[in-house]
Amino acid sequence: MIELVEQGAVLQGFIDKWLAVQPQQRVALAFVDGRRYPGHVALAALEQELLGAAYGIREPQVAVAKLNWWAEELAGAAASGGRHPLTQVLFDDERAHAIASDLWLAPVLAAMAQLEQGSAADFAVQFDAAMPLHGALAALETAWWYGSAASPARAARVATLNHLLYALLRLEQDAERDRLPLPMARLARHGLSRTQLRAPSEARQQAVKAQLDDLLASWRGSATLAGPLSVFRALESRHGSKLAQRAARTDDALATLQAGQPHAGLATALQAWHAARAWQRQLS
């Protein structure tokens, strides 16, 4: 009994890490009960673990080591049941065994491939560079929620857009990293250096707003793509696009992004409810 309690606490710790990044998902959990759908929640927490390794570790060799561990873990989990608490929950579900092994490995391989990427030349290149990792995560998630026949096209687009938006709000902190949240052409057009990204200015405001305009145009285009969204992905996308719209209308777009928006109000609950209804309709 003590061991089960300890395992549950460890598992909850990984879920809490995911919720710390996406606090609006606490509302979604009212419609995706973790006791009935533990794998759905575990998969979201696994995605956050992989993204943390891909983007949150500044030493490339440390990131490679962690991602290599995940590659070994996911490659052997179907046979062993897994060693990590999240993997154990996932591979205790028949869904995990119905998903092709290359879908499990694809996000890890894509994460390793993008570790050495520098700043993109323009928005299109930036989007294409981020797509392999976030598209692979979206493909795995779509197969888990809806089966292998469901298209991940829309989920891949909005997952990539949410990543680029999150990267943008960290502009000041990441101004010295090799991979900047703003493309090089955008910096050149507005005459911005890395140092100038740390302080508010009219040039920075215009560059951030131009980035938001590109993100929002791509978000609007996502509605025409095929494929369903998980409840978590739908809420994440709605939350991100609304935040981008609000920031684009303000005099300090970056400050608005960093402040975020309420995630526990009636609007969020309604969005989660609509996403959950769409999920259940897709399965019926």
Rank of each mutant, 00 (worst) to 15 (best):
W145G: 08
W145R: 06
Y146I: 10
Y146V: 11
Y146C: 11
Y146D: 04
G147D: 04
G147F: 04
G147N: 07
S148P: 09
S148D: 14
S148A: 15
S148W: 04
A149M: 11
A149V: 11
A149W: 04
A149L: 13
A149G: 05
S151A: 14
S151R: 09
P152R: 01
R154P: 05
A155C: 04
A156F: 01
A156Q: 08
A156P: 08
R157D: 12
V158S: 02
V158C: 06
V158M: 06
A159M: 10
T160P: 05
T160Y: 00
N162I: 07
N162Y: 02
H163W: 11
L164Q: 05
L165T: 07
L165F: 02
L165G: 01
L165Q: 04
Y166P: 05
Y166V: 14
A167V: 11
A167Q: 09
A167K: 01
A167C: 13
L169H: 11
L169F: 07
L169S: 10
R170S: 09
L171V: 06
L171W: 01
Q173R: 14
Q173Y: 11
D174A: 12
D174M: 02
A175W: 03
E176A: 12
R177M: 14
R177H: 11
D178N: 13
D178K: 11
R179H: 07
R179Q: 14
L180D: 00
L180A: 07
P181H: 02
L182R: 00
P183F: 01
P183I: 06
P183C: 04
A185H: 06
A185D: 15
A185T: 12
R186E: 14
L187P: 01
L187I: 03
L187D: 03
A188S: 13
A188I: 10
A188T: 08
R189V: 01
R189K: 12
H190G: 04
H190S: 02
H190R: 12
L192H: 00
L192N: 07
S193Q: 02
R194Y: 00
R194C: 14
R194L: 09
T195P: 07
T195S: 15
T195N: 14
Q196M: 15
Q196F: 00
L197K: 05
L197C: 07
L197M: 15
R198E: 15
P200S: 11
P200F: 10
S201R: 07
S201E: 09
E202N: 15
E202C: 12
A203K: 04
A203G: 07
A203W: 02
R204Q: 15
R204E: 10
Q205M: 12
Q205H: 10
Q206Y: 02
Q206E: 14
A207E: 08
A207S: 08
A207Q: 04
V208E: 03
K209Y: 03
K209D: 13
K209Q: 15
A210E: 15
Q211L: 09
D213F: 12
D213L: 12
D213G: 13
D214R: 03
D214H: 13
L215R: 00
L215T: 02
L216T: 01
L216C: 05
S218D: 12
S218H: 08
W219L: 06
R220V: 10
G221P: 00
S222R: 01
S222Q: 01
A223P: 00
T224A: 15
T224F: 12
T224I: 08
L225W: 02
L225F: 05
L225Y: 02
A226Q: 10
A226Y: 02
